[in-house]
């Protein structure tokens, strides 16, 4: 700490300390702790808060598992279903995203000339100047029953009747995959970029096929980038709201939509908090799992 102050001078050091403490304590730790506490409290009207009924309870977590007491089902099939559907879809989207982005990132990092590479980066970034909601609506227009894609397919005679991409959730998966593509490409690009090109040539010279070179040389080298991209894409996909609202089929619910409903439409903040905590826990578990699978440390992921 002394060293830090001596190195950066009192003014800059104080600014850093205040900014970081403010960010961590006021914007992250306190709200999350408040949510955590709220999730263990009953949903009371404002007048009763702090009164004798305001005790810690597991009621919201129980609700998530067993459902409403008036319901006939032994478990809360709907919410649990939505939860696992969200998580599994997010994992699926993450994998698709990885498969889609890896070749692009590799091409940009190792194959393309610096100029082509820069052009590619710019053309990847520019579409993201458009608001996420607008992008989702644009996809909806593309995928709608009488949308661009259906019209083209019908027009060329490839299909006889329109395909309901929205109901099949094709639009949702596409939208979610597209939404966080940059967060996958850039960590991958950074990781692959740092690989010595001679390693690729050496592998080739020793007789390795392209696939094996990727499997044995590039992917092991890029694993921190892969883990980093996967965790970010997974977290943001699982926590996405706008894209599922616009693009999901009428029978598909995203877990964030439930959270949104508890908070905003049912005015049940404590249940919303409990659901948020559940999502957060699973996301953190996912990150730890990724680190375990790829044998990377948290420091490597952040890099």
């Amino acid at each position: 700490m002394n060293y830090f102050f001596n190195k950066n001078g009192p003014l800059i050091s104080t600014y850093f300390v205040i900014a970081i403490v403010f960010w961590l304590v006021f914007l992250i730790i306190i709200p999350q702790l408040y949510m955590l506490d709220l999730s263990f409290r009953p949903n009371l009207p404002p007048l009763l808060r702090g009164g004798p009924d305001d005790v810690h309870t597991l009621t919201h977590y129980k609700y998530f598992i067993f459902g409403s007491e008036t319901s006939d089902d032994p478990y809360n099939y709907v919410d649990i279903g939505v939860f696992f559907n969200t998580i599994s879809t997010a994992i699926f989207v993450t994998i698709i995203n990885l498969c889609f982005c890896y070749p692009i990132a590799f091409y940009m990092a190792k194959v393309a000339s610096p100029n082509t590479s820069r052009l590619l980066i710019v053309s990847l970034i520019i579409p993201f100047w458009i608001n996420e909601l607008l992008r989702s609506f644009a996809l909806r227009i593309l995928f709608a029953g009488e949308g661009v894609i259906n019209n083209i397919l019908l027009g060329t005679g490839l299909i006889d009747s329109g395909i309901n991409f929205i109901a099949m959730d094709v639009a949702l998966y596409t939208g979610l995959t597209y939404a966080y593509i940059l967060l996958m490409i850039f960590p991958l690009y950074n990781a692959i970029e740092s690989l010595d090109k001679n390693q690729l040539e050496a592998a080739k010279d020793l007789g390795s096929s392209t696939i094996r070179t990727h499997w044995r040389i590039v992917i092991p080298h890029a694993k921190a980038g892969i883990a980093s991209g996967c965790t970010m894409v997974f977290m943001l996909t699982a926590g996405a709201l706008a894209t599922p609202v616009v693009l999901s089929s009428p029978n598909t619910y995203w877990f964030t939509q439930l959270i949104y409903q508890w908070f905003n439409m049912n005015d049940n903040w404590s249940r919303g908090s409990a659901y948020s905590i559940l999502l957060l826990t699973v996301s953190v578990v996912f990150v730890l799992l990724m680190m375990r699978i790829f044998k990377v440390k948290i420091g490597e992921i952040i890099r």
């Binding site: 001679n198 390693q199 040539e201 050496a202 592998a203 010279d205 020793l206 044995r216 092991p220 080298h221």
Partner: peptide, 12 residues
């Protein structure tokens, strides 16, 4: 077989 200037051994 080629031996590279920086050897290009596989570090992992």
């Amino acid at each position: 077989s080629l031996i590279f200037q920086n050897l290009a051994l596989f570090p992992l």
